[in-house]
Amino acid sequence: MTRPVKRSLTLNGHRTSVTLEDPFWRAFRAIAVAENRPLNALAAEIDAGRTLETGLATAIRLFVLQRLQEDLAKARRG
């Protein structure tokens, strides 16, 4: 296990930071690369879709988990 690391992002021109564990950060970056999207743009989309009760880091973790679940479901279907 790794300790969470604070990382900087720019969302719609505003600097912010999220604290994520390395595996989540690597998966998040890999999704952005696979979709040929800037990491900050993907983070801004996630930020815009989250509720006020959900922190940005949690929203990113849930996004990564959802993508993994979707990929597993696709693999099962063949």
Score class of each variant (00 low, 15 high):
R61Y: 01
T2F: 07
E35Q: 15
V33N: 13
R50P: 11
L62C: 08
E35T: 02
T19R: 13
P23W: 02
S8F: 04
E45D: 13
A41Q: 13
V18N: 01
R50T: 09
L56A: 06
A34V: 02
L65V: 11
F28C: 02
R29S: 09
D22K: 05
L9M: 04
A30K: 12
G13Y: 13
S17L: 07
W25E: 00
A27E: 11
K6R: 15
G13A: 14
A75F: 11
G49L: 14
E35N: 04
R3W: 09
P38Y: 01
N36Q: 14
V33W: 06
E53H: 11
V33R: 14
F24W: 08
A27L: 03
T58N: 09
R77H: 10
A75T: 13
A48K: 12
S17W: 07
R37N: 00
K6C: 11
V18R: 01
G55S: 15
V64M: 02
A32K: 07
A73Q: 07
D22H: 03
T54R: 11
R3Q: 15
I31E: 14
R37L: 12
R3N: 10
V64I: 03
R37S: 13
A34W: 04
R67F: 02
R7M: 09
T54K: 07
Q69G: 05
A59T: 12
H14S: 14
L11T: 08
R76L: 14
L62F: 04
R76G: 14
L9R: 10
L56P: 13
A27G: 01
S8P: 06
L68A: 13
L72F: 09
D22A: 02
M1V: 09
L11G: 08
T58G: 07
L65N: 04
Q66S: 06
V64Q: 00
R67H: 15
A30D: 05
K6I: 14
P23G: 12
W25R: 00
R29H: 04
G55R: 15
D22E: 04
A48Y: 08
L20C: 11
R7P: 04
T51S: 11
A43S: 06
W25N: 00
A73T: 02
M1G: 05
E45H: 01
N12K: 08
P23F: 01
I60K: 04
T16Y: 12
D22R: 08
D47I: 00
E35L: 08
